[in-house]
Design a protein around this nucleic acid. Sequence first.
DNA 1: TCAATTCCCAGTAATCAACTCGGATTACTA
DNA 2: TAGTAATCCGAGTTGATTACTGGGAATTGA
Lengths: 152, 152
Amino acid sequence: MKLSTKGRYGMRAMLALARRYGDGPIPLKEVAEIESLSESYLEQLAGELRKAGLVRSVRGAQGGYYLAKEPALITAGDIIRVLEGPIGPVQCVIESPDMDDACDYAESCVERLLWQRLRDSMVKVLDSITLADLMAEGKRIGPAPSAKNKNC
Amino acid sequence: MKLSTKGRYGMRAMLALARRYGDGPIPLKEVAEIESLSESYLEQLAGELRKAGLVRSVRGAQGGYYLAKEPALITAGDIIRVLEGPIGPVQCVIESPDMDDACDYAESCVERLLWQRLRDSMVKVLDSITLADLMAEGKRIGPAPSAKNKNC
DNA sequence: TCAATTCCCAGTAATCAACTCGGATTACTA
DNA sequence: TAGTAATCCGAGTTGATTACTGGGAATTGA
């Protein structure tokens, strides 16, 4: 039940972009330095976030990435869904499951009720917290150099 | 953010034992058949559940496994913790983290707040639902052949 | 033209997931 | 006491996934 580095690093990168929202495009090199992440790995994540419409990019010199919407309009759930896939502890209760995901006994499957409730509580938290919320918390708890730790 | 088969199959096996609570030891062979799971794989899970004190075993012919406590006293969280490890979306906010897990900037790490809230909501759901609860739901929604699907 | 940048894709090493298998031990039953 | 049904234990295997790295093409501002 853990996030992968994609979700963790992606969240940090998005938060870094949020902090510089309005400053024009920020090169990934810079984000990578601030967050001490690998630039080439970040490139991959940025590509997915761009395709999903959460960030926009400008190519060439002086180019970079910037948030496609203001921080208050981007939730943690948006980011996690792009980088980790649909939210849910098991395949058969992810959001908008297709036919292949549902099992034959879905109607009478008891565990399913448990997993659904777990999913709902996860979705509720992730969809209720925006990048703006996190930045606001940041101001409250002090200057925030993001974690320089593999596990965060 | 998905459970592994250990958590999923383990939950099903525990629920199967719960349904037969009071019937004396149930051999894994039987559980494996009912739930269409691999017996030898179940053996591993059963070993962990036993070491954790959730089930007890009787060796030899006519032996098997049975719940160590009544179904109302075993929560989903108990089972998940044994088979999937401590609950939490990232290492640095798992329950009872030790020194190695916490990062150097824990105090000023903004993402941490998000992950903590997510963890809390997961814990709340998992710790509030017992095997007895699930069995009761089972009666409500009809006869429950557990899912015979890889994803459940 | 040059340098900075995104973009894209291929490869890779290490780890993890999901099992399987063999054999030892234990205990009920006939 | 033999036979059989179980747990117990640890090692091995296979395939997928994770977490990257690197190369090179395309783009663009100075």
